[in-house]
Write a protein that binds this DNA or RNA. Structure first.
Lengths: 340, 340
DNA sequence: TCGGTTTACGAAATCGGTTTCGTTTCGAGT
DNA sequence: ACTCGAAACGAAACCGATTTCGTAAACCGA
């Protein structure tokens, strides 16, 4: 018997397909302990597995969650994927993933491809440029944004508490005796996340009456390094503190500093976002604002599940959930780069 | 009209559902240019999208490729995922991903979950311990192994040309004047990849008449670092060359060396597998055996497609493809850590 | 013992495409 | 003009589950 169907199981167990279906989905309409056992035995013996396609067709539910990631090279993304995978599996869902490579066209294409595939919901770590399409998608199926918001803001978002993390890093640098602080960003990055961190940085400075500014590195080119060199030279010996706005910028910073020697120039303190494994090692350890990726992933799936349940439960457009912004606290890893 | 069905399109275009289906799958049974245009117009106007579940049910093809990755934190894996995503998308397929986290139990669970979901084929980067289950799966649907082989070897495998890469690194270190070479490995890693590299290393040494050995770091514990320290001390000043067998071991190595200072001890040369972004920066640049992840991914999907086509085309068990081993050449990135 | 309600389960419709098979139409060859 | 084969298309079966609706049995209090 190559492939068994539910009716074969039903026949063997002496019940109807409907009853087997009820067993498979352990439905409220309870069955005798005896029939349950009989069905279980047959399934066990035959190794029967229901065909997902048939199930999907009738129930219009796939137990699939679509995930669109902008940049998988970013450890934040890969950690997130692992977390999402685990959280989804815990709910019996699988992940369909698409990598946009930070290309808006690919992102848009992934969006329609995943929706066409029939995913129950969508997790989007957008690279920007598709705000309307994403908002439209959110109108047709459950969508939760990951880390990066869209313009009109009518979509659920899960993100780190960036303002607190910025404050934490500023604390570190101030405690290390810095008189002046710079936040390093990248020219091409105009994401809401970057903006939020930059704003928080400015707020923190003014709140404490510290001097400082946001410095843009021009995408790894000589310009950026030159500007950075200048910044450092201008303030060398004057207790300058640097914050890399994300892991990528930190990499650029490291490359630039490498030209000056393997250890930090005297009086220079640095800190960064995103906890890469190498942060333990570089400069004897770099103080890091670490995001709680596992919890973020869990919240994303949790929220998505809520929406999916609402969609499949309620009849009309009755109970539309209001869009929600969920902030997950991260924490500061204190390391040698901000010791006194 | 909430959701259109194929029969609605057919009605609007004045043809039968069968014809619309033929149009959607542009079947050999050609149709008049006129009907084709009429159908196209209706679909364009209504924005009709066929339901994947229905299609899957009847055709028992999902255009889904299952991917099981052992360790997504490894940049090799995330690069691979990006490549697979692109190659699959180019063939109109989506990816279902599962992350085993190097846990054999999770891997086994992912295996059944993806198969139950009805994927057309499976890409497995196994963490080991499921060789029989994987071989069994390969008997039921197309499977291509990624990087890591299974015991009995009856399954397709795509991997880097590890022997050549090892030879390349030995070349580098020899050219840098090393008199003695050590390959650093991790105790817990008994993968075929590690073994292959270790064997190639031994072969290269004897071929050139160089002294050297394989040193096992005990999983990041003090033992490993101690043993490493001893190794280095024993040979310091004697032109020792170190090869980290993979990125993780290189990280451990870096941590250990960090205790000795930010630059390499005099006369010590190092090289590693796996090109992380940080390899440019650490020790002024670390010579690296880089794998061609994009090509590997492309080959994997290519091979999987071949198998999928065979399965859906041939009637019986007629044309079984023989298992194939595909080696993709990588290349050596020469950097400062192996300069004379 | 009897109406009424719950519980356990079966028959059959249904989801929305694809595929098989048959019919009609069209064009070419003689 | 007639036959024949291929091309274009339609009718209906089909994929394998879920779900609705209905019914018989079991239960239950009065």
């Amino acid at each position: 018997m190559a492939q068994m169907r539910i009716k074969d199981i039903a026949a063997e167990a002496g019940v109807s397909p409907a009853t087997v279906s009820r067993y498979l989905n352990n439905r409220p309409g309870q069955m005798t302990e005896e029939t349950r056992a009989r069905i279980a035995a047959v399934i066990e013996r035959t190794g029967y597995r229901p065909r997902a396609a048939a199930r999907n067709l009738r129930s219009s539910r796939t137990n699939l969650i679509g995930v669109i990631l902008a940049d998988i090279a970013n450890p934040f993304s890969s950690a997130m994927l692992e977390g999402l995978s685990a959280s989804a599996a815990a709910r019996g869902c699988s992940l369909m993933t698409a990598i946009s490579g930070s290309d808006p066209a690919k992102e848009a294409e992934s969006l329609t491809r995943l929706i066409d595939a029939g995913v129950d919901g969508l997790v989007v770590n957008t690279c920007g440029g598709n705000d309307e399409a994403i908002a439209a998608a959110a109108g047709r199926l459950p969508v939760v944004l990951l880390d990066r918001d869209v313009a009109d803001g009518g979509v659920d978002l899960v993100t780190s508490n960036n303002r607190e993390l910025v404050a934490g890093l500023v604390d570190e640098l101030a405690a290390a005796g810095c008189e002046r602080l710079c936040m390093l960003t990248e020219a091409s990055d105009d994401s809401p996340v970057r903006r939020e961190r930059a704003e928080a940085f400015a707020d923190e400075l003014s709140r404490r009456g510290l001097a400082g500014e946001v410095v843009t590195l021009a995408d790894g080119g000589a310009t950026g390094v030159g500007r950075l060199d200048k910044t450092i030279r201008d303030y060398a010996g004057k207790r300058l503190g640097l914050i890399a706005v994300n892991g990528l910028v930190f990499l650029r910073l490291t490359e630039a500093l490498a030209q000056l020697g393997p250890s930090l120039p005297a009086g220079l303190k640095i800190a960064t976002f995103d906890d890469y494994p190498w942060n333990h090692v570089l400069f004897g350890g770099v103080t890091t604002a670490a995001q709680d990726t596992l919890t973020i992933a869990e919240r994303v799936v949790e929220r998505l599940s809520e929406r999916i349940d609402v969609v499949t439960t309620t009849v009309g457009e009755a109970a539309k959930l209001a869009p929600k912004r969920i902030e997950v606290p991260g924490h500061i890893e204190h390391r040698a780069s901000t010791s006194r």
